[in-house]
Every structure is written in C-alpha cells, then in structure tokens.
Design a protein around this nucleic acid. Structure first.
Lengths: 240, 240
DNA sequence: AGGGGGCTTTGATCTGGATCAAATCGCCAT
DNA sequence: ATGGCGATTTGATCCAGATCAAAGCCCCCT
C-alpha cells in the first residue's frame, strides 16, 4: 500500500526519528525534514536511571532535551535543604529554558527514562529561523504556566487530603500518554518526592494515602502501584 | 535639535504611543510602525478602579491588554470561595492567554490602574505574521513561568515569616519600574490579598508584619506604606 | 466635629500537619 | 532461606498557623 517515493511524508526523515516517541512532539513536530535531519545528526539518545540529573540548579547547560519515555521532575532546593518539586514532565515534552543559560532549577529523571539530547546553539538557531518552532515552544511554555498556577492553588489553599487527591488525579491523567485518564498506574514518585511536590511531609502523605485506601477510593499494591476504584470521588475531593 | 523627517525612529508612530508606558514593552516593542499604527487604531485606553475585573475566570474574552500603570493580580477561586493569587503583573506587562480562549483565572486591578485594550483577533494575526512578536511573548511567558515556580517554592516550603518577607521583597523589587530595588513603597495589596497570595490568613499576615516592625526591619505607615530599614536582613530571611 | 463601616491589629484557643520515634514491609544480595 | 537496609507505615506528641472573638484605627460622609 505504500506509495513509492515522494508523497510519503516520512521520506527523507531520519530512521532514528521515524518511530520516535517525540517525533510529533513540541520540537520535532515543528521541524522540516531538512531540519530534522540536521538536528538528528547532532542528537544523542541517553538512558537515565531514576534519580539521574539532567540539569543542575544554578548550572549553565549547553544542551536541551526531549523526553522519549519516563517522567522528569523539576526541583528547586533551598540552601538549607528544603526542596520543592515545581513541575513534572512526561514524554514527549521538551526540557530546557530558551533565552536564559543558567538554570534556576534542576531536572532529574523521576523514573528510569530515555531522553534525546541536542545542542543548545543549534536549536536556538532553528528557533530564530523557524516561526512554527517558536510558536510550538511558546505553546508549551504557556501550558506549563497554566499547570504551575493550578499547582499554586493546590499548594496554597488545599488541605493535605485534597493535595494527595490532586496528585493521584494528576498522575492518572498524565501517566499514560495514550489514554486520557487511567484507573490503574504506577506512581512515578516516592513518598518523599510526593511530599516535596505537595509541600507536605512523608508521614502526612502516607497517612492520607492510608485514609484513601480505608475509604475504598484507591487500592495500593507494592507501594507504587495504585488502582483507583472511585475516580468520581477522587475528582470530587479536589473540588475543582 | 530634531532631525526633520526620516532618521527619527518615532516618525509615523501614533501620537498616543509616543509617550506610552508600554511603548517598548513586550507587545508594542516588537511591532513595526505600520503595525503599531494599526493596533493603535483599534486600541482603547481604560481606567480601572482598584478591584475592577479585566478578565473573569471561566469566561471567554475577545480582548488582550497592556498594563499602562498600576498593578494587576491574577487569581484563582475555588467553588467554595477559597482564593489564591497566582501572579502579579506590573506595567508594561501584557495580560492575556494566547492560543486558549477560555480563561482559567481572573485578572483584576489590584490598585487603580490604566490598561490599553485591543482586539484578540487582531493581535493573534500579528503574532502569526511577526516572529519577533511571538518571540517577545514567548519570553514573557517564560519569565512568568520562572516567577510562578519561584512562588511555588514559597508556598510549599517557606514559613509564614519567610513568606511575608518574600512578598515585601517582591514588591520592593517590582513596585517602581525604574529602580531595581526601592526601600520605600506602597503595598499594592490589602492584608486579605496578601494572605491570598501567600496561602495564609489575614491574622497571620498581620502578626508577621508586626513582628518585622518590632524587630526594626521595616516601618509601617498608614497600613499601606512600607519603609524597609534593613533590606539585607529581609533578603537573608528569605534564605535564597 | 461626630459617627459609622471596613480594614487591621491583637488576644485566646484550637487543630491540622509537623516532628520525633518505632515498627513493618519489600527487595536485593548472599 | 536469611539477613540487612532503605522505604513506608503507624503511633505519640508538639507547635505553627488557623479559627474565633474583640478592640482599635482610618477614612469618608454628613
């Protein structure tokens, strides 16, 4: 059924890109075949173990990345060690901060992950040459801003119970890129990381999870695997 | 001393724009003389009283605005009335959410303010035709994202004392567009609004302000006017 | 000048979540 | 299997900040 040469949009697309998770993501989805080929020439796939650091807070990085699979957490730490996770990113998100070299936060693999790393200078050039790419990255920045502000409401005004429900709902909603909402999933974060995302302590997170379990809203298997029995109730608990 | 015609970059610039606060802001600074003229033709200056609503949460607005003077607060409210301020914007910031019509937050004048309102469709067209404008708005979105994440750290991990110090420092740093940091300023927010920005109650905000006053870090005149006696100490209290 | 209403401060008490302290669980390496 | 170690849960107690309550203050209006 394949058409032989032209007419097939994948003609001329690098082999590595054809089945890539991020092929139609924020960055690569906005590039021409020529650009894709050039970016691919200087790209490197990298497997990250959970906990591995992609960008260090306060450092200057000369790379950007795309997330191919896995979950990446964005963290801020204070000099005294207090830590706050300020965002989660999922495949095929773009990771990096155009226009500013020094990073004000760190990016770490929360789960085992695979990323596609490419030179900052090269993408910066492509951004300035490609309005569609600028637009696409602008769109992701605005979506992240919406998400950050939604989370500010969670941090500032929700109770511990509502915070934990919010987290479970967020994961249920984003864990599987294909399905809009999944009722069973693995948590990409440890209890300590959940605490740092919600502005709580480990103990409070654990107690609230237990409470949800005892109320029959969720089941917990092996600490990390969650089955949501009553998604409606979970959503109701967040109260918008 | 004026050069007669061409050579003066302001030639052909609408009169209304020449002395405008936002003339070199995120939007207008990225437009050509022709575009500026067109945008100006469909723009409207509007005076807002403190508390006046620019965009309602959940509504669809067909306008964007530039802040000419004053302070605008971005709020989210929950169905039960709990409220969180998720951002403050100062002249000459742009207010609006490109790409998405329905607003997930409300924008209100925190102080008496003046804004320049223009049609969404028109600016959307200019954005798609003007890479420099797209870039400029992308830049503002990323700066707002940085600010939102910084505030997430404040909301999630700082104590009431540190939160109030963070707010005073934010205002000292942004109140006067001209000076980088001012040691005396009027608070653009009431105690209730400060509480909604910091995720605290009015009473806690008041007590922490009193504590700062008694420690000699600040002086408070007429509730709204603040003089910072010891800016170093204020910054130290935020601990990065 | 007087009086009223909405902020703001101050005081007393309560409580949700933090902190301190043990178990218990799960998983890996031997 | 067995031991060991980090992660998680559970329990006891504490405390920062919320809540409830009452002045005080400021400013505007008549």
């Amino acid at each position: 059924m394949d058409v032989a040469r032209s007419g097939v949009p994948e003609a001329g697309i690098p082999v590595a890109c054809r089945s890539c998770e991020a092929r139609h993501g924020v960055v690569c989805g906005a590039l021409s075949g020529r650009q894709l080929k050039e970016l691919n020439r200087y790209s490197l796939r990298r497997k990250m173990d959970a906990g591995g650091e992609i960008i260090a807070q306060g450092s200057e990085s000369s790379f950007y990345s795309n997330i191919m699979c896995g979950v990446v957490k964005l963290c801020k730490v204070m000099p005294d060690g207090r830590e706050q996770i300020v965002g989660l990113q999922f495949a095929p998100d773009f990771v990096g901060r155009p226009f500013v070299r020094e990073s004000t936060l760190s990016a770490e693999a929360a789960t085992d992950a695979e990323i596609c790393v490419f030179p900052r200078n090269l993408l910066d050039r492509m951004i300035s040459e490609t309005p569609e790419l600028q637009r696409s990255l602008h769109g992701q920045a605005l979506r992240e801003l919406d998400a950050a502000r939604e989370w500010m409401l969670t941090l500032g005004r929700r109770t511990a119970q509502e915070k934990v429900a919010s987290l479970l709902h967020l994961i249920a909603t984003h864990a599987e890129p294909q399905t809009p909402t999944s009722t069973a999933f693995d948590l990409p974060l440890s209890r300590a990381e959940i605490a740092d995302f919600l502005g709580l302590t480990i103990e409070t997170v654990s107690r609230q999870m237990t409470k949800l379990r005892k109320r029959g809203v969720i089941r917990i298997e092996n600490n990390r695997h969650i089955v949501v029995h009553d998604m409606d109730e979970l959503e109701r608990m967040i109260s918008a």
